[in-house]
């Protein structure tokens, strides 16, 4: 049968990520633990970040500095960041301790690290976008460190427009794209098995389990 680009892509998607894997209605028994909730709690915090951040961006600094409702959404954005990093670190601890890169999941692990690093830059640009004395202080204190690395030529933390643009568009987009890839990879490979739960036929995991028993 004649093939074309659309059909090739469709067949590839059906092969690597069938709908049963993309939207499963059951999970392995070993997922019955609160430890597996840290990832989705991080995503939930990100959703709140995007919702509150969009509202802040629409109304602007005059609003979030002086109005009561503006203060409320400013605080919601701040506490969503705290929850985002809180649960992201717990997710990192959990995945590190269960060696979640096993079974061909290395790109999921590397993608998670990329998300973490981009999120740190997003947080820095957020602190610089507050339009208050804290932001000025952080900008002036941090500029020499940036200069020392040579990155200041195209990432100037004293340039408010650049920091704000990065914070409200470029970095959130990067996080969303990386997150979609991260979640697709999780759904493609499934949740990593515990050390005491060898998959039949997977000798590398079975050997690992033997080593740990």
């Amino acid at each position: 049968m004649k093939t074309n680009l659309t059909k090739t892509i469709r067949l590839w998607i059906q092969d690597v990520l069938p709908m049963e894997n993309l939207l499963p209605d059951t999970m392995p028994a070993y997922v019955d633990s609160y430890v597996y909730l840290f990832g989705i709690l991080t995503v939930a915090a990100l959703v709140w970040l995007i919702v509150t951040g969009t509202i802040l961006a629409v109304f602007g600094p005059d609003w979030w500095h002086v109005s009561t409702v503006g203060h409320f959404f400013n605080s919601m954005h701040f506490w969503s960041v705290q929850a985002f990093f809180f649960f992201m670190i717990l997710h990192l601890w959990a995945q590190f301790l269960m060696a979640a890169w096993r079974g061909g999941r290395h790109w999921t692990w590397i993608g998670g690290w990329l998300l973490f690093l981009v999120s740190i830059v997003a947080a820095l640009t957020g602190y610089l976008s507050q339009t208050n004395f804290d932001a000025q202080w952080i900008g002036v204190q941090g500029k020499d460190a940036m200069n020392a690395t040579g990155i200041d030529g195209f990432f100037n933390i004293l340039n408010f427009g650049q920091m704000y643009g990065l914070h409200i568009f470029v970095l959130p987009m990067a996080i969303i794209v990386l997150l979609i890839v991260h979640l697709m990879l999780v759904r493609m490979h499934g949740v990593v098995e515990p050390f005491s739960h060898p998959l039949e036929g997977d000798e590398s995991i079975a050997q690992n389990v033997d080593k740990h028993q």
């Binding site: 059951t26 019955d32 633990s33 609160y34 840290f38 705290q82 809180f86 717990l90 959990a94």
Partner: peptide, 24 residues
């Protein structure tokens, strides 16, 4: 305080039983 909270929440997530359905 935040680091201590993270350690406590992580420990609780490990030890608290997760509610499960019987028909799994």
């Amino acid at each position: 305080i935040v680091v201590a909270l993270m350690v406590i929440v992580f420990a609780l997530a490990l030890v608290l039983p997760f509610p499960r359905e019987d028909n799994k």
